[in-house]
Amino acid sequence: MTDTKNTAGEQDAPRAGAEAIKAIPVRHYGRYVSAVIAIGLLVAIVYAFGQGKINWHAIPDYFFDHRILTGVYKTLLLTVLSMVIGIVGGIVLAVMRLSKNPVTSSISWFYIWFFRGTPVLVQLFLWFNLGLVFEYINLGPIYKDYWSNFMTPLLTALLGLGLNEAAYMAEICRAGLLAVDEGQTEAAQALGMGHGKTLRRVIIPQAMRVIVPPTGNEVINMLKTTSLVAAVQYPELFRYAQDIGQNSGAPVEMYFLAAAWYLIMTSILSVGQYYVERYYARGSSRQLPPTPWQKVKAGVFSVRRPKGAVA
C-alpha cells in the first residue's frame, strides 16, 4: 500500500508538478457511536461475570488436576481415533458412492442417509444397548463373549462417533473427488496410468485441497462432540470436570474450566489446519501464503532494517 503510493508520488510529482490533495476526510460519526455501544456492552458483561457468585479461584486450582489432564488426554484420543475411523470410512463410502456398480453406490447412499439423518447421541445409546438384539458376539473360534462385555464404553464411543463421522466425511470426500477436472483423469490415462494409480497420484492430491478445510472443521466439531460420550459412561474431559464440580462444590466453575480447555485444544487444531492447507495449496497459487512465523520474521526485519541493525 505504502509502496505503491510512494512510487506513484515519485513519478507524478516532478512530471505534472500538481499540488497534492489536502482534503478534510468524511467523519463517520456512526462508527464512533457503535464502537462505544459495543465496548459498553462488553464491559457490562464482564462486570456481571465478575460480580456473579462464581468462585474464580477454583479454576486455576483444578486447571492442571491430574483428573482433568487425564480427561484432556482421553478427549484427544477419542477425537483422533474417531476421526481416523471417520476419514477411512468416508473415503471408502465416497468411492463406493461414485462407483458404477449400482449395488455398492446404493449401499453407500443408504448408509449416509441413516447416519446423517439420526442424532449422534441417539446412535451412541443404540450402540450401547445393542445387547438387547445381539446377546452374544460370536466370531467363530476367534472370539465369543456377551455383547455387554464386548461393547466397552470406549468401543461404544468410537463406533458411535466414528461411524457417524464417516457419513459426513463421505460427502466431503465425494465433493473433493468431483471437483478435480476430468482432463486430469484423461491425461493420466493417456500416459498409461491405471485406475488406482490415477486416483492415488493425480486425483486425490488435488481433491485434498477441497477436502482439507471442511475436514478441519469436522475435527474441531468432533473434539467438542466427544463431550456427549459422557452419556455412555466413557469418562473424558467434560465428565471429569462434572465429577470434580460435584465433589468440590464448584460445578459451574468446572464448566468454565472445561470450556477453557476445549478452547485451547481447538485453537491448537486451527493452527495445525492452517499448515495442512498450506501444504496442499502448493502449485495452485503462485506464491504460498507466509507462515505466521515468516510473517513475524518479516515484520521484525522490516522494523530493524531502517535502523541499520541488520546489514
Binding site: G183, Q184, A187, A190, G192, Y280, R282, S284
Partner: peptide, 26 residues
C-alpha cells in the same frame, strides 16, 4: 481389460488443447 488398455496407451503420447498438466507437481 483396463490394465491392457493402459498398457497400450504407454506407446501413444497425447497432447491436449487445455494442457492438462498435473497442477500439484512441478
Amino acid at each position: 481389460r483396463d490394465r491392457e488398455v493402459a498398457m497400450k496407451r504407454r506407446d501413444i503420447g497425447m497432447v491436449f488443447q487445455r494442457f492438462n498438466l498435473f497442477p500439484h507437481m512441478t
